[in-house]
Amino acid sequence: MMELVCPAGTPAALRAAVEAGAHAVYCGFADETNARNFPGLNFSRDEMAAGIAHAHARGAKVLVAINTFPRAGEAGLWHRAVADAAAAGADAVILADVGLLAHAAGAHPGLRLHLSVQAAAANADAINFYAETFGVRRVVLPRVLTVAEIAAINRETDCETEVFVFGGLCVMAEGRCSLSSYATGLSPNMNGVCSPASHVDYAERDGAQEARLGGFLIHRTPRGMSVPYPTLCKGCFTAPGGAQKAQTGHIFEDPVSLDATDLIPALEKAGVRALKIEGRQRSRAYVAQVVQAFRAAVEAAGSGAPMPHGILARLTEGQAATTGAYAKTWR
């Protein structure tokens, strides 16, 4: 059976995920060392140790994400995070930065290393490079690949692969995007945040509702309709004409989220070792529902049964879902 890797932004979500059937839970410390550095989220050192003990007692693993890029002059904060994760008994750390990988491989030779999606290793050579150089055992694939390309990668590497199947969807190669810092000064790579709430502004103007990020208008909807959160790459923009016809719309991506439930059997056949659910910022109740549904799906896939259909309809209600780059036509 493929391993189901589930998000936990809080100790309560970790317990809920384990209870709901997660094979592994991923989480991070409450600081800039992880890519979901949101207020009120993540784990203190004591909470991490307790969470790991709780998971281990129930047969689940804990993977600690330390996947931002250390700030020059302050790598100590990131080195301590790796050391503390190792001391707390983490089953693996999820890293993106080459300097941090080199440090972890040297200072903690027994610690299992996973390559974060933030490293955007998008072909077998890149993956084998990280595996051979730092001993990386598993790579989380960037969301730019088709299922056929993932299968081809697995034929060329012994490194395990993990792919996203549900939740928020980056349309850019992860870890290689500065759109957020261009608009707000804060970025996933440096600060662990994308399109941060601190720079969001909602207002009503001329009978329309507007959502801005760093002063840039991202969404405008008629009064009475809900206005989506202004995640930059899901915004509505216009490309003025010139030689061509002017175009207005969701130039990068619609406000959709990823749901690859139907592709789970194909991903298993492609040699994928683990399925990942996005959403460390989500509630305990959400995590429990999604994990339960996906545990049933991976078990069905493992025994060749059809995918349970519409299992997550409630959670994606009112929001469109996509299979993203897994289908070639998305490009």
Partner: peptide, 18 residues
């Protein structure tokens, strides 16, 4: 600022990258 698997130029013309 960003690189993607998706071609936005093609998307502006209702085409896929291929």
């Amino acid at each position: 600022l960003a690189i993607s698997g998706r071609c936005y130029h093609a998307r502006l013309h209702d085409r896929a990258k291929d």
